[in-house]
Every structure is written in structure tokens, then in C-alpha cells.
Design a protein around this nucleic acid. Structure first.
Length: 568
RNA sequence: GCGCCCGUAGCUCAGCCGGAUAGAGCAACGGAUUUCUAAUCCGUCGGUCGGGUGUUCGAGUCACCCCGGGCGCGCCA
């Protein structure tokens, strides 16, 4: 199904051809409602190219443009913009078509790609914390959207399960472990022994050396240490799974760093053999002397002591994803500090001849009220579990207040949808690169650009249908008369124009902002236009509009990984 | 020293490929409710887009310089 934007772009292209002008400029949504619904700067661009007066060029185009019954006659405005205003009948017709469309107008891609999306990546023996929220939530949303477009998506959790932290964890396990605590709350106990060991090792060089030895033993295959490692991995994975269940996050594969162990020597060998890597100060490095930005920043792929590091693992990971998984596209979602690292990794991959489309999708940080990285009072990372539990508890409190008569199971379900949705939406409604200040009150507010506000719009729609006793609408003709109806319907038609924009630069906030506008527009409509009490044909038409709005809200939020309750 | 990201209303933030008089939300103030959930809606107030120079018909957006904040830069991940 074509959007108004693509339909009008074609009409414009036809007009340019008829006027013997090259195709130029673009047709975009109007920057302001005063200018109608769509605008084009084609005349401005052409006038510049040809040294003519823009308004004259615009008039020339206007003489050839035939918008049929889509729009009112287009007009020239300002320095030479051409403005298009949709006719209510055309909007009504399109909305009726959308009602019949499962995909709500969003067309599938014609060039399906195989995309590995790497996001989340928590560390074993450490709790998931607030720092994992952005990568996890953003990566999941992008995966959902890519999938919706028909791409083949492989969600990969690149778990940190082989790092140097294991030296300390194993030392702690052997010397400090309390079995009962481990049974009660495994992650807390792992964290305790890790922290305590860390403290000791900073004070006592002999402890530090002992930790290093434990790590070396593990990495060289010591059975006891490997068994401790395995137990830690299993305990942590259980912890991750609980968080993912609550967050409704799913992975197709979870290839931790350890998965790549036996591939690392071959990676270094290969890079040395091909001349891409060389030995420098005892370490194996890749230099990028021809790239000014990286000229003085070599990438170490084997340490002087013969050990491998995360760069080695990441090169092996690229190999695996392209050669074994047959990916043609790799998206890696991590915080901005890793920009340099992945520039190097991707550059190495290109030099090795890989043609895949590599994207490092970076994001900013979540800050506390003090505008510094969000931490607990004692300075630790805020555990994810506590964060999510509190979100649900706070949401529960609000539900209790507003709707005390609901059953207990309903309240729990609703609180979870609102609480988790609020955390996710607070993140996704913002441009990914900017740091943002975490605020319970703001994200759980019923007013403003929040998940509960959007969910409430959906709930109001469901409420209408419960009252009507009708599950869905069965009409093929809408009658749009009131401004609030027309505006809502136009917005609904834009869903298919907005969703593709998200993948343009990986900005789910574009979709979030659209959904906020939609919810706002729906609320305005709701205030201005009675549905069930109005006369036919308005009643059926408005019911259909509600149906469509509910489905777009539900689908849009689903693409962001957010659920909608039926009541709240 | 080199590099990356950010700087927009009192606060929190949108403004992708340069387009018209820079937009929301919150807060503040003023209105609307015998209602399909007022958990909402409508209105008012509020900005030399950090500063400067340049590119051009046009710059919050691009280039260069400066200021301020955050982060990263050979053996942690």
C-alpha cells in the first residue's frame, strides 16, 4: 500500500517530467499545519540549479501537477514552496484501507537482509544493572522493527563470560565463599566475593598475583577452575533470564566471549600472515597509518604476555557472524565510549575483505538526579532487578489508587505493563546519543510524553469497545467531518511513513514521538467527538477510527517492546 | 596532545539527508467534568538555538575557530 507521501511524490515527479524539468527536491510532511499536509522544495532546488526565479519555477510545476482527488489544488507559498492539503474524502478512503491491512500500511522491504544484532551483553558474575538498560531496550526495539520489515534478524547476546574478572571471582570462590548465601541469592554472593577480593587485591600484591594465577589456570584449561567458572556462568544466566522475562526480551543465540576462545590463535596467525598485523613492543598490533584519525591508535590483538583481549574476540566474532551465520549486516549496540574500538574492529574487517554492512549503534548514559552516572547511595551500580521491581511497585501503587476495584491478578499484570513500559519508553523516546536524567515521577506520570499516557489512550479505546459490546468494526466507509476526526485520521495514515524512518539512523524516538502525537490527537478527538452516543453514520465511522487508532498504538508500542493493558 | 559525543524555553527534551515566523512535555497561570476512564482536554506565559567567522537564495542543521561539559586514546572489557 502506498502512503500519501509516496503517492504525491509520484504526482510531483510526473509534473516535473511533463514540464521538462529534472526530478529534484523532495516531498515531505509540511513543517507546519498552516502549510497544509505536505510540501515540496522542488522549485527552490531547480531554481538554484538553473538560475531562475523560484516562484516562477513553482508556478510552472503547478501548471503540470495533477493530484487527482487526493488534494485540494496545490498552492505556491513563501519563497517558492508548493503546498498540498489532503482532502477529507481521500483521508477517509485511505483510513478504510488501513482498517483492512494487518500491517497498517507499512510495506515490507524488497531487499531482505540477514542482520545480526548484538545488544545487551551483560557480564557473568556481575549483576545486570542500569547501565545495561539502554543497549538492551534499544537493541530489542531495533530488532523488532527490522523484523517487522521482513529482515532476517539474529539477536545475539555477546555475554562477557571470559574476562579478567574471573581471576578474582575464582579466588573469592575458593577463599571467601559462603555456600548458604550462594544458595539464597547467588548473584549477591558472587558480587560480594568479587568485591571483597578486589579490595584485598588492591591492598595486597600477593592476592593480586594469586588472582592472576587463577585466571591463567582457568584459561589454560584447569578442571577445577573451569568448573567454578561454569557454575558462575550458569548462575548468572539464570539471573539474566529472569530479567529478560520481565522485560520481554528474547535472544536467538547467546554466544559469549568464551565461545570464541579456540578461534583466537587462528585470528592472530591469519592477521600476521596477511601482513595486516605486526609485532610491536612484544605485542601483536594492527596499525592504521593511512587513517589520520587512527594513525596513532593501534589495536592490540595479542598482548605481550601472549594473552588475547577483547579486540581479538571481536575480530573472531565478526568472522563467525559472516562466515558461519552468513550475515550481511551487523549492528552492534553499545555505549558511546566504545566508538574507537569498533572503528578499529570494522576497519580490520574491511581490510580482510569483508563486505558486510557494519554499524556501531551507540548511545548515551542514564544519569542520576545529580547529573552524574546513575549510582546507588553507596556508589554502586543500580541493580537492574531492583530498578524493574521498583518500577512495577510504583506502577502498582498508582493502579491501586486509580482503580482499586480491579482483581489482584489484574493489578499485578497492569502494574508490570505500565512499570516496564515506563522504563523502556523513557529510554526510547529520547534521542539515543543524549544522556538523560532518570526520574521515576516523570516516566510514570500520566501526563506528557510517557508510556502510561500512551497506554491510557489505548485503554480508553478498549473501554469504548467493551461498552459497545462490539469487538471490532465492520465498515468500509468513513465519514470525516470534525477537525479532530480528520486530524486523527491523517495521523493514522502517517504511521507507514514514520516507521521506516526509524531505521534510517536507528532512532526509535521518531516512532515514540509519533505515537505521542497520535495519543494526543486521539485524546483531543475523544473529548470533541462522542462515539457511542453519536448518530449514524458518524457512530460507525468514529468506532472505526477508534479501532484503527488502537491498533496503531498497539502495534507501534509493540515495535518498541512495550505492552498495552486493557484496563488501567 | 589527538579523537569522539553533547551544549536549543526556568526544568527535561524533539528538531535524520540545510528549507517558511525554532517545537513538545513538565512547571506557572486561566478555563472545561450530570461523560465512552478528568489517568483527559483547551488556552496563556516563556528562546540573541553556548560564542564567533564562513559557505548560499536560505544555517539550530554544513565547514573552520573559540568557550563549557562528558568520554576515549598499546597490552581491562
Amino acid at each position: 500500500m502506498e502512503t500519501f507521501q509516496t503517492l504525491l511524490a509520484k504526482k510531483l515527479a510526473d509534473a516535473l517530467t511533463a514540464a521538462k524539468l529534472p526530478n529534484a527536491g523532495e516531498l515531505t510532511p509540511a513543517s507546519d499545519a498552516r502549510f497544509g499536509d505536505y510540501q515540496t522544495n522542488a522549485a527552490l532546488v531547480l531554481a538554484k540549479q538553473r538560475g531562475e526565479n523560484p516562484r516562477n519555477v513553482a508556478e510552472k510545476i503547478l501548471g503540470r501537477v495533477d493530484v487527482g482527488d487526493l488534494c485540494e489544488p496545490p498552492t505556491v507559498a513563501g519563497v517558492g514552496f508548493i503546498n498540498f492539503t489532503l482532502r477529507a474524502e481521500a483521508v477517509a478512503k485511505k483510513a478504510a484501507e488501513l482498517l483492512q491491512d494487518e500491517r497498517l500500511g507499512v510495506t515490507k522491504t524488497t531487499s531482505t537482509r540477514k542482520i545480526v544484532i548484538d545488544f545487551g551483553s551483560p557480564n557473568v558474575a556481575k549483576p545486570m544493572h542500569v547501565g545495561h538498560v539502554r543497549s538492551t531496550v534499544l537493541g530489542d526495539a531495533l530488532a523488532r522493527i527490522a523484523q517487522f520489515f521482513g529482515h532476517e534478524v539474529i539477536r545475539d547476546n555477546h555475554i562477557g563470560d571470559w574476562g579478567t574478572q574471573f581471576g578474582m571471582v575464582i579466588y573469592g570462590w575458593k577463599n571467601l565463599l559462603d555456600r548458604q548465601s550462594l544458595q539464597r541469592d547467588p548473584i549477591a554472593e558472587l558480587v560480594r566475593i568479587y568485591k571483597e577480593t578486589n579490595e584485598r587485591s588492591t591492598k595486597d600484591p600477593s592476592v593480586r598475583e594469586a588472582c592472576r594465577q587463577e585466571l591463567v589456570k582457568m584459561q589454560s584449561g584447569d578442571a577445577e577452575n573451569l568448573s567454578i567458572w561454569k557454575q558462575c556462568v550458569d548462575l548468572s544466566m539464570g539471573d539474566f533470564e529472569r530479567a529478560y522475562k520481565l522485560l520481554d526480551i528474547h535472544y536467538d543465540i547467546q554466544r559469549g566471549e568464551s565461545f570464541y576462545n579456540d578461534r583466537l590463535p587462528k585470528v592472530v596467525e591469519r592477521l600476521l600472515k596477511s601482513g595486516l598485523a605486526e609485532i610491536s613492543e612484544g605485542a601483536v598490533c594492527v596499525f592504521f597509518r593511512d587513517i589520520p584519525e587512527l594513525a596513532d591508535k593501534p589495536c592490540i590483538i595479542r598482548k605481550r604476555d601472549g594473552g588475547y583481549n577483547y579486540a581479538t574476540t571481536d575480530v573472531a566474532t565478526v568472522d563467525y557472524r559472516i562466515n558461519d551465520l552468513k550475515a550481511d549486516t551487523i549492528w552492534i549496540v553499545t555505549g558511546a565510549p566504545q566508538i574507537l574500538h569498533f572503528k578499529q574492529i570494522f576497519e580490520i574487517a574491511r581490510r580482510e575483505g569483508y563486505k558486510a554492512d557494519f554499524r556501531h549503534i551507540t548511545h548515551g548514559s542514564i544519569l542520576g538526579e545529580n547529573r552524574k552516572l546513575m549510582k546507588t547511595r553507596s556508589g554502586d551500580n543500580v541493580p537492574l532487578r531492583e530498578l524493574l521491581d521498583e518500577a512495577c511497585a510504583r506502577a502498582r501503587k498508582i493502579v491501586e489508587e486509580k482503580n482499586p476495584d480491579l482483581s489482584d491478578t489484574e493489578k499485578i499484570d497492569i502494574a508490570q505493563k505500565i512499570g516496564i513500559g515506563a522504563v523502556k519508553y523513557a529510554d526510547l523516546s529520547q534521542y539515543r546519543m543524549t544522556d538523560y536524567v532518570f526520574s521515576w515521577d516523570k516516566m510514570l506520570s500520566l501526563q506528557g510524553n510517557t508510556a502510561p499516557y500512551l497506554q491510557n489512550a489505548y485503554v480508553r479505546i478498549r473501554s469504548i469497545f467493551r461498552k459497545a459490546g462490539e469487538t471490532q468494526t465492520k465498515i468500509d466507509q468513513l465519514v470525516l467531518a470534525e477537525a479532530a476526526e480528520i486530524n486523527l485520521a491523517k495521523l493514522l495514515c502517517q504511521f507507514a511513513e514514520v516507521v521506516p524512518q526509524v531505521l534510517n539512523d536507528f532512532r526509535p524516538n521518531i516512532l515514540a514521538n509519533y505515537l505521542f502525537e497520535l495519543a494526543n490527537s486521539f485524546h483531543t478527538f475523544y473529548e470533541a467527538c462522542p462515539v457511542l452516543k453519536s448518530e449514524e453514520p458518524a457512530r460507525s465511522s468514529r468506532l472505526a477510527l477508534c479501532d484503527l487508532a488502537g491498533r496503531v498504538l498497539q502495534r507501534g508500542l509493540d515495535l518498541l517492546g512495550i505492552k498495552v493493558p486493557e484496563k488501567m
